[in-house]
Design a protein around this nucleic acid. Structure first.
Lengths: 231, 231
DNA sequence: AGCCTCCATTGACAAATATCACTCGTCATT
DNA sequence: AATGACGAGTGATATTTGTCAATGGAGGCT
């Protein structure tokens, strides 16, 4: 039977979650036989906050926006979903509900793997469980950092931090086309879109970055880092 | 050999972490033989942010303050450490450093258990590992909530939330003596101590609570909840 | 008793940030 | 080519919140 899936197999997948390295051949096979692919267009919702967390999601290509939906359309963007990560909210292990939503920013190709399989692997493979703990801890640390950032930094610091995030965690270059609108950049740094615009301009005037519409170029990374750290 | 420790044994400990229920008799024995007790006076530091996360801490009595130390003495209080919880930062599973500090608010009696033991148990007991994942997830969810709260709520909402937290998670009653100073209440809700005072007064004037120095009494819980949720 | 320190409280003011109202492009659709 | 929707950008203004300075009370220590 021909397999017309986009990703041939978990075994040789080059964007597999690092923790899958801890699985045996048979366990990988189990994964591979129980994964489902789907492709999303920009704007489409991949995972919906509050709905049953029945699957873990993995991106094989593209970028997603991970965000918490608050009341009155006030969203908070936690970060960008990328390949090689497991996308699964902390709620999955508690009440089996998604703790956040994920929507496609570009064309996104995904693999879905049932939480039943994931939980089975956790129970039967201690190294895998450890890897899951590590991943959860890492996410937790990131959220801790966000918390401190929100609590202690003023707008320029938070925006500088976001720019560094995109440069270092998402694009791995100092010049990039940012996928987020000013509005979304505001939802990520907790500021009004007008403030994003103004502070972006300030950063440009002080020679730290160059920003033209969606294009952002970091001119003085050290200064940017200083602004990010000083708050 | 006489054992003069305050807690007789992990086996019949009534404030044990719930996940220890997943351990076998032998594993409990291992815990019990490798735990160390210490008593702290108010103000003393139980766990220091940045220092090696060599132990998990458990309170057998008293209350602690879990806080992140930012730059320039700007702390952020994450919550109150209580008995029956495991106190261990997410950093322990990543780079073996404490992600936050914990200091005693009252006289605190603690058990320390080495991370080596904890990690060994994670590796050899899948149920225990699952329980650890659950705990981490729960903490993660709490921090997510804090994040949304900070980002979307104004001061009265955040303070109302903190009061409800103390009422429901810490004291389990509607009238209590709060252990935190106004300053610390501010560090928990991200507001200046003067603002804490002012909003406490507003809440009192609108008949939601009664507050006299450290004594807080919730008069209208529904209204308080409304303020907390509406932001 | 007198002194000292810490904390709560208050009022006046300043700083940070949001909101509103509007203009201007750009791009897709008719 | 005209229309409309959406996002970027700008200036004026309002709101929220922090900072500063000062006062007073409670408790511990000499």
């Amino acid at each position: 039977m021909a397999d017309d899936r986009l990703v041939n197999s978990c075994e040789n997948c080059i964007v597999a979650w690092k923790n899958f390295k801890n699985l045996s051949k048979n366990e990988i096979k189990l994964l591979n036989e129980n994964r489902y692919e789907a492709t999303f267009k920009p704007g489409e919702i991949i995972m919906k906050q509050g709905s049953p967390a029945s699957n873990a999601v993995f991106l094989s290509s593209g970028m997603g926006k991970i965000y918490i939906e608050g009341s009155d359309d006030k969203n908070f963007i936690l970060g960008i979903a990328l390949p090689s990560q497991i996308i699964i909210g902390p709620g999955a292990h508690i009440h089996a509900r998604n703790s956040y939503s994920v929507s496609a920013l570009t064309i996104v190709r995904t693999c879905f793997i049932s939480m039943e399989i994931i939980n089975q692997l956790i129970r039967q493979n201690a190294e895998f469980a450890s890897g899951m703990i590590e991943d959860l801890s890492l996410r937790s640390l990131e959220v801790h950092n966000k918390l401190v950032s929100l609590a202690h930094k003023r707008m320029p610091g938070r925006l500088a931090e976001a720019i560094l995030y995109f440069s270092e965690q998402v694009y791995n270059t100092d010049i990039f086309d940012i996928v987020l609108s000013r509005q979304e950049l505001g939802e990520m740094t907790n500021m009004a879109k007008e403030s994003v615009v103004r502070i972006l301009k300030e950063l440009e005037l002080s020679g730290v970055i160059k920003s033209d519409n969606s294009k952002i170029k970091i001119i003085d990374k050290e200064k940017l880092r200083l602004i990010s750290e000083r708050g």
